Amino acid sequence: IEEVKKIVSEIQSKQLTRITINGNTYQVNSPEELVEYVRKVFS
């Protein structure tokens, strides 16, 4: 979970619009959307 928080804060600070998780690239339009992807991947 700490690793996830680190990734999320990194993305928020860079305002990235794409994230790659487990080889899948997602278009991310908002931090909320990012959190949803993270929940799916780590749930």
Rank of each mutant, 00 (worst) to 15 (best):
I1L: 12
I1F: 13
I1W: 14
I1N: 12
I1T: 12
I1K: 10
I1S: 13
E2W: 09
E2L: 09
E2Y: 06
E2H: 08
E2T: 08
E2N: 09
E3T: 12
E3W: 15
E3H: 12
E3L: 15
E3M: 13
E3C: 15
E3Y: 14
E3Q: 13
E3P: 05
E3S: 11
V4E: 08
V4N: 03
V4T: 04
V4S: 04
V4R: 04
V4K: 03
V4G: 03
V4W: 14
V4H: 07
V4P: 04
K5S: 13
K5F: 12
K5M: 14
K5C: 15
K5G: 11
K5L: 14
K5W: 14
K6G: 05
K6A: 10
K6V: 08
K6E: 07
K6C: 12
K6T: 07
K6F: 10
K6S: 09
I7N: 02
I7Y: 08
I7A: 05
I7W: 11
I7K: 03
I7T: 03
I7F: 06
I7S: 01
I7D: 02
I7E: 02
I7L: 12
V8R: 02
V8N: 00
V8M: 09
V8I: 15
V8E: 04
V8K: 02
V8W: 05
V8S: 01
S9I: 12
S9P: 03
S9K: 14
S9N: 11
S9V: 10
S9C: 12
S9A: 14
S9Q: 14
S9Y: 13
S9M: 14
S9L: 14
S9D: 13
E10L: 13
E10R: 15
E10V: 10
E10I: 13
E10D: 09
E10M: 13
E10K: 06
E10S: 06
E10H: 07
E10F: 11
I11A: 02
I11N: 01
I11V: 03
I11H: 01
I11C: 03
I11Y: 01
I11K: 01
Q12M: 15
Q12V: 14
Q12T: 09
Q12H: 11
Q12P: 02
Q12R: 15
Q12K: 11
Q12Y: 15
Q12C: 14
Q12A: 06
S13P: 01
S13N: 11
S13L: 13
S13D: 11
S13F: 09
S13I: 12
S13C: 10
S13T: 11
S13Y: 09
S13G: 07
S13M: 11
K14L: 10
K14Y: 05
K14D: 03
K14C: 13
K14E: 04
K14G: 07
K14P: 03
K14M: 10
Q15H: 10
Q15E: 06
Q15Y: 04
Q15I: 05
Q15A: 09
Q15V: 04
Q15M: 08
Q15K: 12
Q15D: 04
L16Y: 03
L16N: 01
L16W: 05
L16H: 03
L16S: 02
L16V: 05
L16T: 02
L16P: 02
L16G: 09
L16A: 03
L16F: 05
L16M: 07
T17C: 11
T17N: 04
T17D: 08
T17M: 05
T17R: 05
T17W: 05
T17K: 05
T17E: 01
T17I: 11
T17L: 08
T17P: 02
R18F: 07
R18A: 12
R18M: 11
R18C: 14
R18W: 09
R18L: 07
R18I: 08
R18P: 00
R18H: 07
I19P: 02
I19C: 05
I19F: 03
I19M: 06
I19K: 00
I19R: 00
I19S: 00
I19H: 00
I19Q: 00
T20E: 07
T20D: 03
T20F: 05
T20S: 06
T20R: 05
T20M: 08
T20A: 05
T20N: 06
T20K: 05
T20C: 12
T20Y: 06
I21K: 00
I21T: 01
I21V: 05
I21H: 02
I21P: 00
I21F: 07
I21Q: 00
I21W: 03
N22W: 11
N22G: 09
N22E: 05
N22P: 00
N22M: 10
N22V: 02
N22Q: 07
N22L: 09
N22S: 05
N22A: 08
N22H: 09
N22F: 11
G23S: 03
G23L: 03
G23K: 02
G23Y: 02
G23E: 04
G23R: 01
G23H: 04
G23N: 06
G23P: 10
G23A: 02
G23T: 01
G23M: 02
N24L: 15
N24T: 14
N24P: 00
N24C: 15
N24D: 07
N24R: 14
N24E: 12
N24K: 13
N24F: 14
N24V: 15
T25R: 04
T25E: 08
T25F: 11
T25D: 07
T25Y: 08
T25L: 10
T25Q: 06
T25S: 10
T25K: 04
Y26R: 02
Y26N: 00
Y26E: 01
Y26C: 10
Y26I: 15
Y26K: 05
Y26W: 14
Y26S: 01
Q27P: 01
Q27I: 12
Q27V: 15
Q27D: 09
Q27L: 07
Q27Y: 08
Q27H: 07
Q27S: 13
Q27K: 06
V28G: 15
V28T: 15
V28Y: 14
V28K: 15
V28A: 15
V28L: 14
V28F: 15
V28I: 06
V28C: 15
V28H: 15
V28N: 11
V28S: 15
V28W: 09
N29C: 13
N29M: 10
N29Q: 08
N29D: 12
N29K: 08
S30R: 04
S30L: 06
S30V: 06
S30E: 03
S30G: 03
S30H: 06
S30D: 06
S30P: 10
S30N: 05
S30I: 06
P31D: 02
P31C: 11
P31Y: 10
P31W: 15
P31I: 08
P31R: 01
P31G: 01
P31E: 01
P31M: 09
E32C: 07
E32S: 07
E32L: 06
E32G: 06
E32F: 05
E32A: 12
E32I: 04
E32V: 04
E33R: 03
E33V: 04
E33D: 07
E33M: 07
E33N: 07
E33L: 12
E33I: 03
E33T: 03
E33H: 03
L34E: 00
L34F: 01
L34P: 00
L34Y: 01
L34N: 00
L34Q: 00
L34H: 00
L34V: 02
L34D: 00
L34K: 00
L34G: 01
V35C: 12
V35D: 02
V35M: 09
V35I: 14
V35Y: 06
V35T: 05
V35A: 08
V35F: 06
V35L: 09
V35N: 01
V35E: 09
V35H: 01
E36D: 12
E36A: 07
E36W: 06
E36I: 04
E36T: 03
E36M: 05
E36R: 10
E36Q: 06
Y37V: 15
Y37N: 03
Y37G: 02
Y37R: 11
Y37D: 01
Y37M: 15
Y37K: 11
V38S: 00
V38H: 01
V38K: 00
V38T: 01
V38R: 00
V38M: 10
V38D: 01
R39D: 06
R39C: 14
R39E: 13
R39Y: 14
R39K: 14
R39T: 12
R39L: 15
R39S: 08
R39W: 13
K40R: 10
K40N: 10
K40D: 10
K40V: 06
K40P: 03
K40L: 13
K40Y: 12
K40W: 14
K40S: 10
K40A: 10
K40G: 07
K40F: 12
K40E: 11
V41S: 05
V41W: 12
V41A: 09
V41Q: 07
V41Y: 13
V41C: 15
V41I: 15
V41R: 04
V41F: 13
F42Y: 11
F42T: 04
F42K: 02
F42S: 03
F42P: 01
F42D: 02
F42R: 02
F42W: 05
S43C: 13
S43G: 14
S43L: 14
S43A: 13
S43F: 13
S43Q: 13
S43W: 10
S43I: 11
S43Y: 12
